[in-house]
Write a protein that binds this DNA or RNA. Structure first.
Lengths: 115, 115
DNA sequence: TACTAGTAGTCAGCAACACTAAGTACCAAG
DNA sequence: CTTGGTACTTAGTGTTGCTGACTACTAGTA
C-alpha cells in the first residue's frame, strides 16, 4: 500500500469499520476479510484488531464471545447507541472534508482544461 | 476542531496544501489564511509550517525568500515537477478512498429509508 | 506422528502526522 | 514603549496504522 493511503486511512479506517458494524455485527477476522473484498487489499490484520480494541475501550461497540468451529473463539462486535452517535459525527466530518477536497479536485480539472 | 477531523486530516492536509500550491505559489501565513477561508477554521499555524518543512525536505516544492513589508521575510513555496507527480498520486489515493467510503455512506441512507 | 495451512486473536515497537505552546523577528500605530 | 499584526521556528505530546512475532485451535496430508 502506498504511504499516502496509509496516512489517509488514519481517522477514516475507524469510520469505515464502524460503518461496517452498523450494517451488521462482525468479528475481527471477518471485518478484515470484508475490507479486502471492498478493495482495501493491504490493510494489515494487526491494524484491524488494534482498532477494535480501541473502539471497544471507548464503549462504541458491544462485544460477545462466540465459539468457532475453526480456531479460537470469535469476538463479535456490534455498534451500540454511543457508537451510532459517534458514527454520525464521523459522517459529518467526512462530508465536510470531502466537499472541500472535491472542490480543489474540480479546480484542478478546470486548470487542466485551460479555463 | 473535533478529534475525528484532526485524525482525518492526517494524510489529506498535505494533499490539500499541495493542491493549493498547484493553483498558485504561496507562503505559510498565506496558506493558513486560505485554509481558514475555505472552512478549515481551526487548523493550527504550527501544523502548516511543519507540513511545509516536510514537503520542502522531500523536494516536492521550490522555495524563494521574498522580503515582506510587514514582518520577517516570506518563504514562498511553489509546486515543482516532483510535487506535481506526488499530487497526482494523492488524487488517485483520494479517489479510491472516497469512492469506497461514499459507497458505505450511501448504504447507510438506504438503511435509514428502510430499503 | 509431524507438518502444513487456515482460522482467530494478542502484543511490543516503530514511523508519520496534527496539535500545543512557547519563542524569535520585524514593523507600524497608539 | 507597548501593543498588535505579520511571519516563521522549535520542542514535546497523543493518536494512528504498520510490522513482525507470537499463541491457540482445527483439519488435512505426507
Amino acid at each position: 500500500m502506498g504511504k499516502q493511503m496509509t496516512e489517509m486511512l488514519k481517522g477514516t479506517l475507524e469510520g469505515i469499520v464502524l460503518a461496517l458494524l452498523a450494517a451488521q455485527p462482525a468479528y475481527g477476522y471477518e471485518i478484515t476479510a470484508r475490507l479486502r473484498e471492498q478493495g482495501f487489499s493491504d490493510i494489515a490484520e494487526g491494524t484491524v484488531y488494534a482498532l477494535l480494541v480501541r473502539i471497544e475501550q471507548r464503549g462504541l461497540v458491544d462485544v460477545a464471545k462466540v465459539p468457532s468451529e475453526k480456531g479460537p473463539p470469535r469476538k463479535v462486535y456490534s455498534l451500540n447507541a454511543s457508537g451510532g452517535g459517534y458514527l454520525d459525527e464521523f459522517w459529518n466530518s467526512w462530508s465536510f472534508l470531502a466537499e472541500r477536497i472535491e472542490r480543489l479536485h474540480h479546480a484542478k480539472h478546470m486548470q487542466e482544461k485551460g479555463e
